[in-house]
């Protein structure tokens, strides 16, 4: 649970990236990854992955930090690959088959492409969001992207309760042992804790809503912002970089003749 407890606080500082508005990071991650999601070929994915790694290293990401932060993706990538290896659309020579599973030239190629793609799509998001502060993200969503402030701030205030919920969870886990039901029945125990967590969460949310309304939240009056959320040249640079990587990746695939839209 260390990932949950630590959050963004102990994340290392990065050059350049830390100066960018969180919403720009979100936009950049989407801009960069959306084209990659439309093609399954190893050239575009590998091109993007290599450029990303070089740029993140330049920004100050160290290999150990990368493994510590991105391990779920490092595990997910080969798993996606195995699934594709067994069930990818068969073509070319067949090496092995069992019921619906068939390993062929085509599925091997697809498996490699998907494995690299999961990394190329997943890593930038994880590394870009490493230090995102929810308050700043919300400021950006409401002030830069002009999303409705009632919803953005309501979500932000609700999300802040996450620390309390984690404490609730630990206390409930101890109490299950104290009540004599800590030895067996993991799933049942999880269910009682999950239910109690929801009850406590909704109660807290209702009280929080009252506290927010009492401070004038939710009225039709136009609101001001104590802190301005702005974008500057560094934000545009990041967008340009994301766009350039996407173009380079797709361009490389087309040049190499491996471009392979998912729908074909």
């Amino acid at each position: 649970m260390s990932a949950v407890a630590s959050g963004a606080v102990d994340a290392p500082r990065l050059r350049f990236i830390d100066r960018v508005n969180p919403v720009t990071k979100l936009a950049a991650a989407m801009l960069l990854t959306a084209p990659l999601l439309l093609t399954v070929d190893w050239v575009s994915a590998a091109t993007a992955l290599v450029i990303e790694l070089v740029l993140f290293m330049a920004a100050g990401v160290r290999p150990r930090m990368l493994v510590r932060r991105a391990w779920p993706i490092l595990i997910a990538a080969p798993i996606a690959g195995i699934s594709m290896l067994l069930y990818g659309r068969p073509s070319g020579e067949e090496y092995w088959s069992f019921w619906l599973a068939r390993i062929t030239d085509g599925s091997i190629e697809l498996a490699i492409a998907v494995t690299v793609r999961v990394l190329a799509v997943g890593l930038p998001a994880v590394l870009l969001f490493m230090r995102v502060d929810p308050t700043e993200l919300a400021d950006g969503l409401a002030q830069v992207w002009r999303l409705p402030s009632r919803f953005v701030l309501g979500a932000l205030a609700g999300a802040r309760l996450v620390g309390l919920f984690i404490e609730d969870w630990h206390a409930m886990a101890l109490s299950r042992r104290a009540r004599g039901i800590g030895d067996t029945g993991v799933v049942r125990r999880f269910a009682t804790m999950a239910f109690a967590l929801l009850v406590l969460a909704i109660r807290r949310g209702s009280k929080l809503a009252t506290a927010m309304e009492a401070r004038g939240f939710g009225s039709d009056r136009p609101r001001t912002w104590a802190r301005a959320s702005t974008i500057g040249w560094s934000d545009w640079v990041l967008i340009a970089i994301a766009f350039a990587i996407a173009v380079a990746a797709i361009g490389a695939a087309i040049a190499a003749g491996t471009f392979h839209p998912v729908w074909s």
Binding site: G154, A155, A157, G158, L161, L197, G205, L208
Partner: peptide, 10 residues
Amino acid sequence: IVVASVVAVA
């Protein structure tokens, strides 16, 4: 809004 967020968070 707040309870929807809280349910989502939970």
